[in-house]
Simulated assay, not measured.
Amino acid sequence: MGFNYLTVERVSTISPQDFYTHYVKPQKPVVIERLTADWPAYEKWHFEYIKQVAGEQIVPLYNNDPVDYNKKVNEPDASMPMGQYIDQLVSGRTNLRIFLYNIMKHVPALQNDFKFPDLKLKLLKGLPMLFFGGKGVNVFMHFDIDYANILHFHFAGEKRCVLVPPQQSKFMYKIPYAVICREDIDFDNPDFDKWPALRHITPYVADLKHGEMLYMPEGYWHYMKYLTPGFSMSLRALATKPKHLARAFYNIFIARYYDNWMRQRKGAAWLAEKNQRAISETHQHLNAMNS
């Protein structure tokens, strides 16, 4: 038995005011199917084109190994030319993925292929990030440290996105001072006997095809799984709610530095302590709800 998913709403197109009124203001996810239809990227952004324009770029690659106290946050596990990586990706010879890569910085011509959509969000123009993965590769469940509003565009394949509202974080086995949950939770096949608090979350799910955009509101947890080889681009806007801005400030300027300091001081023991606290603190919420 798995989760009782809610299907993310879909619209073909939408006006900026309706998007803000019906989705940003109530903080509700949505898929817009045709937002990129007039972008050059809609026709061009497939693997062969990326190889042509960025094939020589050396790109950072990541695996899904658990957090290691010896590694810096977002430190890559490998690197290789983009063209070589895409060949391995399409042929199924790698499980490595590209994560948070600002390719526009290295290949400015790609900026001519997309538009910053007018959706009444103040998008950060310097931070279009790309993500690549092969069939079956997943991106661990997490939320973004800055509580941004995220516009997530998918290309060249299909991708499953599972979202959990921030209001349900107390049941997520969140790791203290981090933006991830227990990494040994299988969100494709959740073990509710081992992780009973997960019975009390109601995730959203959306399967994205080429050119579709998913809006992920502020602080939403998200787990991504590539159903086929593909890649995505995210645009982001700052949090609009004061409490989310406060949490973003805490995450970036306090929690992150404290966590790094404790890693240096206690090493693996700190990670073990946080993993145990994720269980004990989540079950405190669960027991309080059931009492």
Score class of each variant (00 low, 15 high):
residue 277 R to C: 13
residue 81 P to H: 02
residue 135 K to W: 00
residue 46 H to F: 14
residue 38 D to W: 07
residue 219 G to Y: 08
residue 28 K to C: 07
residue 193 D to W: 05
residue 167 Q to W: 07
residue 5 Y to F: 15
residue 167 Q to H: 09
residue 157 G to Y: 09
residue 201 I to R: 03
residue 163 L to G: 04
residue 164 V to L: 03
residue 273 E to P: 03
residue 239 A to Y: 08
residue 276 Q to F: 05
residue 199 R to V: 01
residue 146 D to N: 15
residue 215 Y to E: 00
residue 29 P to S: 01
residue 27 Q to Y: 07
residue 141 M to S: 05
residue 136 G to L: 09
residue 13 T to L: 04
residue 118 D to P: 05
residue 127 L to I: 14
residue 133 G to K: 04
residue 233 M to D: 10
residue 260 N to Y: 12
residue 133 G to P: 14
residue 181 C to H: 04
residue 270 W to R: 04
residue 203 P to A: 01
residue 36 T to W: 00
residue 174 K to D: 07
residue 248 A to T: 14
residue 263 R to M: 06
residue 181 C to N: 11
residue 103 I to W: 05
residue 179 V to W: 05
residue 236 R to L: 02
residue 257 Y to F: 12
residue 108 P to T: 03
residue 192 F to S: 01
residue 212 E to P: 04
residue 256 R to S: 10
residue 60 P to T: 07
residue 288 A to D: 10
residue 109 A to T: 14
residue 261 W to L: 03
residue 185 I to K: 02
residue 27 Q to M: 11
residue 67 V to E: 15
residue 152 H to M: 12
residue 89 L to N: 01
residue 156 A to L: 03
residue 147 Y to G: 01
residue 51 K to C: 14
residue 124 L to M: 14
residue 127 L to F: 14
residue 16 P to L: 06
residue 52 Q to C: 14
residue 23 Y to H: 06
residue 162 V to F: 04
residue 132 F to A: 10
residue 39 W to M: 01
residue 79 S to I: 09
residue 10 R to W: 09
residue 179 V to C: 11
residue 53 V to C: 11
residue 34 R to A: 12
residue 264 Q to A: 08
residue 287 N to K: 14
residue 276 Q to A: 13
residue 211 G to S: 04
residue 62 Y to I: 01
residue 120 K to P: 15
residue 148 A to N: 13
residue 221 W to N: 04
residue 60 P to Y: 05
residue 163 L to W: 02
residue 215 Y to L: 00
residue 275 N to I: 03
residue 276 Q to Y: 06
residue 28 K to G: 00
residue 19 F to Q: 03
residue 277 R to E: 15
residue 163 L to P: 04
residue 57 Q to Y: 10
residue 26 P to L: 01
residue 235 L to C: 07
residue 6 L to V: 02
residue 133 G to Y: 06
residue 288 A to N: 11
residue 117 P to Y: 02
residue 234 S to C: 11
residue 19 F to K: 03
residue 222 H to N: 13
residue 155 F to C: 03
residue 211 G to T: 04
residue 14 I to H: 07
residue 75 E to D: 12
residue 160 R to F: 09
residue 60 P to C: 04
residue 229 P to G: 10
residue 179 V to Y: 10
residue 204 Y to G: 07
residue 21 T to E: 13
residue 271 L to R: 09
residue 250 Y to V: 10
residue 62 Y to F: 15
residue 240 T to M: 10
residue 25 K to M: 08
residue 228 T to A: 07
residue 197 A to L: 02
residue 32 I to E: 00
residue 176 P to V: 01
residue 12 S to H: 08
residue 243 K to N: 10
residue 286 L to G: 02
residue 16 P to S: 12
residue 216 M to S: 08
residue 142 H to G: 02
residue 67 V to D: 14
residue 34 R to I: 05
residue 86 I to R: 05
residue 130 L to F: 15
residue 125 K to R: 14
residue 202 T to C: 08
residue 16 P to E: 09
residue 24 V to N: 02
residue 254 I to K: 07
residue 277 R to F: 14
residue 287 N to I: 15
residue 169 S to K: 09
residue 42 Y to M: 11
residue 213 M to Y: 11
residue 29 P to A: 02
residue 186 D to H: 07
residue 123 L to F: 13
residue 84 Q to V: 06
residue 162 V to D: 00
residue 206 A to Y: 00
residue 223 Y to Q: 02
residue 159 K to M: 01
residue 149 N to S: 02
